Deep mutational scan, measured.
Amino acid sequence: MSGIALSRLAQERKAWRKDHPFGFVAVPTKNPDGTMNLMNWECAIPGKKGTPWEGGLFKLRMLFKDDYPSSPPKCKFEPPLFHPNVYPSGTVCLSILEEDKDWRPAITIKQILLGIQELLNEPNIQDPAQAEAYTIYCQNRVEYEKRVRAQAKKFAPS
């Protein structure tokens, strides 16, 4: 494992614990031996107030490669969400998460999670990743928002 990646992720964890947006979660997972795995984080993004996503808490896994922060983490909703920019596998399609697009090593975990929260309610229809959600979003916004509200209710924190 890269010392650069681990040191950056340790800084990220410290900064997150000191200050993070209300309702968001970002925690490194534990290895079988109980030690912390900084390369694999369990996160959760709350649906934004005043949107059909409100009330939901959407679980996301963030996986970092050894060359982080040169390369972005892979962000994957578990379980996958109904959304035009979420692949059926759950992987998020967002330009700041793509090395050859808008990724920059200075982007923080907090910025990534806030960017994904923004994307939930403002899909990028130029870059669809899920045919069904994309089609319904474009053709029947009322039905799309109904499905999103049902999903938010399903993923409401207990």
Rank of each mutant, 00 (worst) to 15 (best):
E98K: 14
E118L: 10
V148A: 07
E118P: 05
G55Q: 11
I125V: 10
T135S: 10
L94P: 00
R141K: 10
C75S: 10
N124H: 07
C43R: 01
L113T: 11
Y68R: 08
L60I: 13
D33G: 03
E145G: 04
N121T: 09
I136T: 08
S70P: 05
N121L: 04
A133V: 05
E98G: 15
C75R: 01
E132D: 13
Y68H: 08
W16R: 02
A15P: 01
D67Y: 05
K49N: 14
E122R: 10
D100G: 08
I125S: 09
P73L: 03
I107T: 10
P84L: 13
K110L: 05
A131V: 13
F155S: 09
A5T: 08
K18R: 14
T35A: 06
W16I: 03
K14T: 06
Y134R: 02
I112M: 15
V142E: 15
D100Y: 15
F77I: 05
M36S: 04
G115V: 00
R104M: 04
E132G: 12
N124S: 06
K18V: 13
M1T: 00
G34M: 07
A156V: 07
I125N: 08
I125T: 09
E122L: 09
D127A: 03
A131P: 11
V142A: 09
S2L: 02
I125W: 08
V27D: 02
K76R: 14
L120S: 03
A133M: 03
K74S: 15
S95F: 02
Y134H: 05
D19V: 07
K153E: 13
V148I: 14
L119R: 02
P157L: 06
Q126H: 09
Q139R: 12
E118Y: 09
H83Y: 00
N124L: 00
N124C: 11
E98V: 05
I136V: 06
E143G: 06
K101E: 13
A131L: 11
N121P: 00
A10T: 10
V86A: 07
L113I: 12
Q111H: 10
I45V: 15
P52D: 09
V142H: 12
E99D: 15
A150V: 10
V148D: 00
L119C: 05
R147L: 13
S158A: 13
C93R: 03
L119P: 03
G56S: 02
F58S: 02
N37R: 13
A152V: 04
Q130P: 00
I4T: 01
Y144D: 10
N121C: 09
A106L: 10
Q117L: 07
R149Y: 07
D67V: 08
D33E: 06
E122V: 13
P21S: 08
E122Q: 12
N124D: 01
Q111V: 14
R13G: 00
V25M: 10
F77S: 03
P80A: 14
I96V: 14
F77P: 03
V142S: 14
Y144C: 01
Y68F: 08
S7G: 06
G90W: 02
I136F: 11
A150K: 13
R147G: 03
M36I: 09
A15V: 06
P80S: 06
S2T: 10
L38H: 01
W53C: 03
Q111S: 15
I45H: 00
T51S: 12
F77L: 05
I112A: 08
V25L: 08
K110V: 09
Q130R: 08
K59E: 10
P32L: 15
N85D: 02
P157A: 13
L114K: 09
E122T: 11
A131R: 04
I4G: 06
S7I: 06
A106P: 05
N31S: 13
K14R: 15
A10G: 06
K110T: 04
D19G: 05
I96G: 05
Q126R: 13
P52L: 08
K110N: 08
I96L: 12
F64L: 11
D33H: 02
Y68N: 01
D127V: 02
P128S: 12
H83Q: 04
K153R: 13
L81T: 04
I116V: 11
Q139H: 09
N37Y: 13
A26P: 01
Q126C: 14
N121S: 10
W53K: 02
A150W: 08
E118K: 08
K48R: 11
G3R: 05
P88L: 14
Y68C: 05
T108I: 14
Q151S: 04
I107N: 14
I136Q: 11
R141W: 05
R104K: 10
F155C: 10
M62R: 00
E145F: 08
E145Q: 09
N124R: 04
T35Y: 02
N37K: 11
F155L: 08
I109S: 04
M36V: 05
S89P: 08
E54K: 03
N85S: 12
G90R: 03
N121A: 06
E143V: 07
F24L: 04
E12Q: 09
S89A: 14
L57F: 07
H83L: 04
P105E: 12
L114G: 12
N40D: 13
R17S: 07
Q126L: 10
Y87N: 03
A131Y: 12
A44T: 08
Q151L: 06
A5G: 12
L38I: 09
S71L: 05
Y134F: 07
R149Q: 13
L113R: 00
F82R: 00
I107C: 15
L113S: 07
N40Y: 09
L57S: 05
P46S: 07
Y137C: 04
S71P: 06
P72C: 12
K65R: 15
R141S: 06
K65N: 15
D66G: 10
H20P: 00
F77N: 00
W53G: 00
K74E: 11
P157S: 11
K49E: 14
F155Y: 11
T108L: 15
D100N: 13
V25A: 10
A150T: 11
W53R: 04
C75N: 04
V142F: 10
E54G: 12
E122S: 07
N31C: 10
K65E: 15
N121D: 14
T29A: 04
D102G: 15
W103F: 11
A131S: 14
G55N: 08
L60P: 02
K76S: 15
D33V: 03
S95T: 08
E42G: 10
A106T: 13
Y68K: 00
E42V: 12
N121F: 03
A152D: 01
W103C: 01
I112R: 08
E118G: 10
